[in-house]
């Protein structure tokens, strides 16, 4: 056993990490990947079905996008409320988290959870724990990209 100093020096840490790594189960990488593929694929196929529904009712591919997003967010919220969405993500990983339904899950889950802390500092503030950064950096990135395109005259 190496002598402990605190914090332990880098060499000891590296040696220990090597020792510990031998005892860790290796991640079931392939299993995670195909499950993410299947769940993500199925959610997007469902989304495509919603788009087709709106297109069959007079929407164009462009105008069908916003109502489709709303329907998918509604479904993600409902599944979260029923307690099913976390099981879906446990199985499908990012296949459940990356679609917009997972974005809905990231808002609805804390909104349900932090009721006890009150409607303002609980529900109102905590619902953006994950979604807040997504919206903030999405807006910032879109601003930067949009500004660059505008200056380059690409947007005109």
């Amino acid at each position: 056993m190496p002598e402990a100093g605190n914090p332990t020096d880098k060499a000891t840490q590296t040696a220990y990490e090597k020792l510990a790594a031998r005892h860790r189960p290796t991640a079931p990488a392939w299993g995670n990947l195909w499950r993410a593929f299947v769940i993500g694929g199925l959610i997007c196929t469902a989304g495509q079905a919603v788009i087709s529904f709106f297109e069959a009712h007079g929407y164009t591919p462009t105008t069908a996008a916003p109502p489709t997003v709303v329907v998918m967010i509604g479904l993600g919220s409902l599944f979260t409320g029923m307690g099913w969405y976390d099981a879906l993500v446990t199985w499908g990983g990012m296949g459940g988290s990356l679609p917009i339904t997972g974005f809905a899950n990231s808002i609805v889950a804390p909104a349900m959870e932090y009721k006890r802390e009150g409607p303002v500092m609980g529900v109102g503030a905590k619902m953006f724990t994950v979604a807040g950064p997504v919206i903030a950096y999405g807006l910032a990135a879109a601003f930067v990209v949009g500004a660059v395109r505008w200056f380059l005259g690409l947007a005109a």
Partner: peptide
């Protein structure tokens, strides 16, 4: 879970360790 990780209904995968 509430304090250290995530809200209960927020889906996430637990690591094997």
């Amino acid at each position: 879970e509430r304090q250290f990780r995530y809200p209960i209904e927020l889906g996430y995968q637990r690591a094997l360790t």
